[in-house]
Simulated assay, not measured.
Amino acid sequence: MTTTMSVSDLARVLFASPLQASENPSPDQVRVIIEDRIRACHEDLSGCTALVAQEAGDHPEAYETRMRWALREADRVYPVLASAT
């Protein structure tokens, strides 16, 4: 399922999840939350993208930090995708 998505796609899904950087999630926890969120939105990322945009507007001071974390985590747990880009 995730092999057709880029690291930035996966980061948007993670960004839109309730998982927090402060929880110091394991790679398995990150993968599970991403895959659960993708299934929940029936593999249509537009809902996740809309939530990212809304959060960026509502909390611009936190957007950059959270997105950087989400990108790092997606890159860490899906390294094959990161090296393919």
Rank of each mutant, 00 (worst) to 15 (best):
E64R: 06
R31L: 07
M1W: 01
H59W: 06
S26V: 03
W69H: 07
P18N: 14
D75S: 12
V30S: 00
M5Q: 08
P25L: 13
V7I: 13
V52H: 07
E73L: 09
A84Q: 09
P79V: 08
Y63P: 04
P27A: 14
R68S: 15
A74Q: 02
S17K: 02
D28R: 10
R66Q: 08
A16Q: 01
V32C: 03
R31V: 03
D75V: 00
T3C: 00
I34T: 01
P27T: 05
D75L: 04
T3F: 01
M1G: 08
N24C: 13
H42C: 12
R68H: 10
S26L: 14
L19V: 09
R31I: 04
M67R: 03
L10V: 07
L45Q: 05
P25Y: 11
A11S: 05
D9R: 05
P60F: 04
A40Y: 05
A62H: 12
D9Q: 11
R68T: 15
V52R: 05
T65F: 07
T65D: 09
M67E: 05
S26F: 07
V52D: 01
R66L: 05
T65M: 09
A56N: 10
S46Q: 08
H42V: 13
Q54S: 14
E23N: 12
L14N: 00
Q20Y: 15
Y63D: 14
A62G: 08
A16S: 15
D75N: 10
P79K: 12
R31T: 06
E23L: 07
E64A: 15
T3D: 02
M1E: 13
F15R: 00
P60Y: 06
T65Y: 09
L10K: 04
M67F: 14
Q29S: 11
M5A: 13
A56G: 09
Q29G: 07
Q54E: 14
R31Y: 03
P60T: 15
A62D: 14
P27F: 08
A50F: 04
L51R: 13
V77Y: 00
Y63C: 07
S22N: 04
T2G: 04
T3H: 01
V80L: 11
I33Q: 05
A16T: 04
T65W: 06
A21C: 11
R72Q: 07
F15W: 05
A53T: 08
R37E: 11
R66P: 04
L14A: 04
A53C: 12
L45A: 10
R72M: 09
Y63V: 05
T65A: 12
E61Q: 13
V77F: 00
T85H: 06
A82R: 03
A84M: 08
T2C: 06
C48N: 09
D28P: 03
L10D: 02
E35N: 12
I33V: 15
L81F: 05
V80K: 02
C41P: 00
V32W: 01
I33R: 03
